[in-house]
Amino acid sequence: MKILVSFDIDGCLETGDPPGPITLDMVRKAQSSGCIIGSCSDRALSSQRRMWDDNNIVYDFVSPKYALGDVMKQFEADKYIHTGDRDMDEMFAKKAGFDFYWEKEGAEEPWLAMLEESKD
């Protein structure tokens, strides 16, 4: 099973302003488990790239929040997930056909359970 996970930054990732509950270790774990990972945020694209680079994470994509649909077109996956802390995240995720998880739900790493289940 291939899962794409899109992370909002501010209020969602620990590197956000304000910091969110999802740690970069969780992102690394998702990636090492086979997930396609990246960020969809209102932060500038260059700022998103710098955030990943500064933390030595080789991201698969960065995108404006409104362009989740374009991310879906770029990557083939069985499941598309966006996690964020605002109703705008929810709106854009649903509009693009992503499953949406609030940041606190994202911090429970639901994608890991999905991958585990898919093995059964």
Binding site: D17, D42, A44, L45, S47, R50, K65, Y66
Partner: peptide, 17 residues
Amino acid sequence: NRPDDLQITAEDYLASR
């Protein structure tokens, strides 16, 4: 607080929501 945001490019600006 956010010196990164002072480095935005034209691409960043035009891609802004």
